[in-house]
């Protein structure tokens, strides 16, 4: 899993301000952040500026990263999402949105931390067990509006079909989270 390498790179940035590690993170994530923003409708230039800005936030916040609570990709997604929400608010001259931090310390109990890291692994495995239709619908839900009507347009499907695919994908994810942890490989 490439996430482990990226976990170490974020930790290197946090500990030593390691520019080489940052360059590796940048090479992997900046082009994906650009792709993500362009999918939400931004121009190439705006998406590039955004990717740079989000990666700068990764540099600044690296010491808040805790690989026991979130994988590198999830953490970087959350940072980028928060930057994007802030950007939208700033354009509307509004106060910043609440920070939605997947590393927020809900609890420092070891069993909670263990559950969190197991969840992360299991979620990644669970995605591979969704039907292709469910996976496509769920993925699109991260780019398009919450009514799912854009997803229906994009896939050329009735809205009800899209909604039921997303619902079923969520049910599957929940089932996997509710399964006892020992079945999971570390």
């Amino acid at each position: 899993m490439s996430d482990d390498i990226h976990d170490r790179q974020i930790e290197a940035v946090a500990l030593h301000r390691d520019r080489e590690a940052f360059a590796c993170l940048f090479a992997h994530f900046a082009p994906r952040l650009k792709a993500w923003l362009m999918r939400t409708g931004a121009t190439a230039q705006a998406a590039e500026d955004f990717a740079q800005d989000a990666m700068l936030a990764v540099w600044r916040k690296a010491d808040l990263f805790d690989s026991r609570r979130a994988g590198a990709s999830a953490w970087i997604f959350a940072i980028a999402r928060n930057r994007r929400l802030d950007m939208i608010r700033r354009e509307k001259r509004q106060p910043p949105a609440p920070e939605l931090d997947p590393c927020a310390p809900e609890s420092d109990q070891p069993d909670v931390l263990l559950a969190a890291s197991q969840d992360a692994t299991r979620v990644r495995q669970a995605l591979q067990h969704l039907t292709p239709d469910q996976a496509v619908a769920l993925r699109l839900a991260f780019f398009l509006d919450q009514s799912h009507s854009e997803i229906a347009d994009r896939l050329g499907l009735p809205l009800g079909t899209v909604k039921s695919r997303i619902r079923n994908a969520m049910i599957r994810l929940r089932q996997i989270l509710e399964t006892p942890g020992q079945e999971t490989r570390p």
Partner: peptide
């Protein structure tokens, strides 16, 4: 649940076709 969905989002981000800067 939100933490798990954020992991899904991370996987989605990871799986995107990169667009060069």
């Amino acid at each position: 649940v939100v933490r798990s969905l954020t992991e899904v989002a991370g996987e989605v981000l990871d799986g995107l076709e990169p667009i060069a800067l």
